[in-house]
Design a protein around this nucleic acid. Structure first.
Lengths: 213, 213
DNA sequence: TCTGCATGCAAGTGGTTACTTGCAGCGAGT
DNA sequence: ACTCGCTGCAAGTAACCACTTGCATGCAGA
């Protein structure tokens, strides 16, 4: 006897395929240009089946968004060490990881940015439920670094982190649109890290290249 | 006798009204959701007239983009002083001005970000022809400040400026989507300026920081 | 007054959209 | 064997899309 999930006509499988196809089409064609016909085709499923699972187009959109948020929640940027030592290197790792993820999901990011007005609830959910946890951990790490004396006291870390991630987001949007002139994504991330580190680090302190020999 | 432009059926007036209506609808509904019917209605003009002026939808789009770039070229961020004195204050003025303009054109910015894939030529034109001149002047100002000893030597100013404007862009996108938590746009800009200034200024205000004595 | 041109209006074309209906096949549990 | 749930398929609906055609109107310059 086979497990339930391997049955040929298992509804949850069809459902999953539709949702994943929808996310692909949303990213490629945009939320409003994405048609039920194309999504069903992409899922290898009859269009009618789409309407039988999700009552209408909006129902599919909602479910797909829920699915996306959940699947993102299971991912990690992959930094667990304390940030009290070697702050700059940790920043670099974080920035590289986040930038990479954004590039990977570039099309979807563009879609959400572009249609945030027409689907404000979904846009808010996506931003708050996917990027917020990442940002929260980032803030905590910086607070630890501040406690260790590596970070300036007179900066709002919430906003600073927002600025840092925005720097990466904005750069990604321009670079992937082929509008960067003479530098790569890696170059860009490196400068971002450099600038941000110099911006938040305690002034007199750490790795300032020594003036005067 | 009246001047030519005040005639009632002056074609250039109709044309202008259509283009400006188109830009409004593009911003509000997106490039691909914007219909000729709605644009003509918004312009107070018969739909057929639209097709008589611009052969098709794409023709109108191209002309509207040209118009947008031109009208932006006539605007100034409004800083003409040398940046050699009071660098931080000049940064603040620049950032406030640019952020304000972005908020003003928020909907259009979102549309272009979201549809950059489906209209790459127009997206590139918009970015390169409208934001590049602003960025170029910014780089020149920073170079002047560097020559005066206020700015670190070991930073690629092109990328740094890109990072700064991206910081403002990314923040605007989040804040106007009501995804900022407990801070305003002004707060955000202030922190950006603070961070960026601390990031590019020569450390400690001491002139040079070359190692080797 | 006549002519040309820009526009409005009514109607229509062929294509696409979201969404529905009715029917038939097929695998699985009973 | 029989039913039940999931699916595919063919067809259709009403709305909307970009775009066209033909004709009437009205303003201008000659």
């Amino acid at each position: 006897m086979q497990t339930a999930t391997s049955k040929k006509n298992e509804p949850s499988v069809t459902r999953e395929r539709l949702i994943e196809a929808a996310l692909r089409v949303y990213a490629r064609d945009g939320l409003s240009r994405a048609t039920t016909r194309v999504i069903a085709e992409e899922a290898g499923v009859n269009e009618v089946t789409l309407f039988r699972h999700f009552q209408n187009k909006e129902g599919l959109l909602s479910e797909a968004m829920r699915h996306f948020v959940e699947s993102m929640g299971n991912q990690d940027i992959g930094e667990e060490e304390a940030w009290t030592s070697n702050l700059k290197e940790n920043l670099r790792r974080f920035a590289t990881g986040l930038y990479g993820k954004m590039v990977q999901d570039e099309a979807f990011v563009r879609t959400m940015v572009g249609e945030a007005h027409r689907h404000p609830e979904h846009a808010r959910t996506i931003i708050l439920d996917t990027v917020r946890p990442i940002r929260c951990r980032f803030v905590q790490n910086l607070e630890a670094a501040r406690a260790a004396g590596c970070v300036r006291q007179d900066v709002d870390l919430n906003i600073a982190v927002e600025a840092f991630t925005s720097m990466l987001l904005g750069g990604m949007l321009k670079i992937t649109a082929n509008c960067s002139e003479g530098y790569t994504g890696d170059d860009y991330v490196a400068v971002c890290v450099d600038l941000f580190y110099a911006g938040i680090a305690t002034p007199q302190g750490v790795s300032v290249s020594v003036s005067q020999g």
